[in-house]
Design a protein around this nucleic acid. Sequence first.
DNA 1: AGTACCACCTGACGGC
DNA 2: TGCCGTCAGGTGGTAC
Length: 260
Amino acid sequence: MPELPDVEVFRQYVDATSLHQRVDHLHVRDEALLRDVSRQKLVSAVVGTEFERTARHGKFLGLHSTGGPWLLLHFGMTGGIRAHGQDKPAPPHTALALDLANGLRLAYTNTRRLGMIGLADDFQNFVGDQELGPDALDLQRHAWVNVLSGRRGAIKSLLMNQEAIAGLGNEYADEALFHARMRPDRPVDDLSDDEVVTLHRQIQRVLKLAIERRVDPERMPASWLRQAREPGAPCPRCDGHITKAEIGGRSTYWCPECQS
DNA sequence: AGTACCACCTGACGGC
DNA sequence: TGCCGTCAGGTGGTAC
């Protein structure tokens, strides 16, 4: 599922394939994903311009053309991005396709149609309007302490709350807690200073390593929880077994033997 | 502030 | 074989 590392890889992919190329055509193939913007407005904002840079905050990706607004993409659970030759058919479930001057077509796909395509005059203002918390990847230690202060409830719920910290979803929240050896149902206001520091470090480590491996399933460490998201599966770290429960309304996996 | 629930949406999968 | 319920999970809304 597209969480922060996936979206960061998408961002780098857009940088590598689609910058500084005039957008010759824009096809909206699934209007349902447009948020607060019409097909016409999108076309007039983007066609004829060139993307000059990208940005990401949490799970949102932004593409910017000089003098124009930001094109915003959110990937929901099943969104993706791919560039292919314009002579080939667009991939299945393409919701938005941009034909570029270099002959590539940048396709935003979304099988389950949860996500969004939008426009914003300013990316940072958009982030503020969405009331997103600090991005999980460049979250400084003191900002992390701020995120936690005055909070209650299960730590996993907080990790998934985009208004507290932006970028972690169900899988990476579980993964970070696994590496911090912390139970997902631990109350936030119960964590020791050391545990707070450890969790911060593990969030950073997990996100950075996933990006470095480009979230390629074949390159992801076998020692990670992601390989064992199944009740009763052997723990990748100890001789315990993975257990599953609903926490914060989401399927949550952890090892009761080595997470406390 | 937190939680619980519903809705959105499609495809995969298990049971019968 | 085919129908049906359930699950997956990010977000957004509402009620409590």
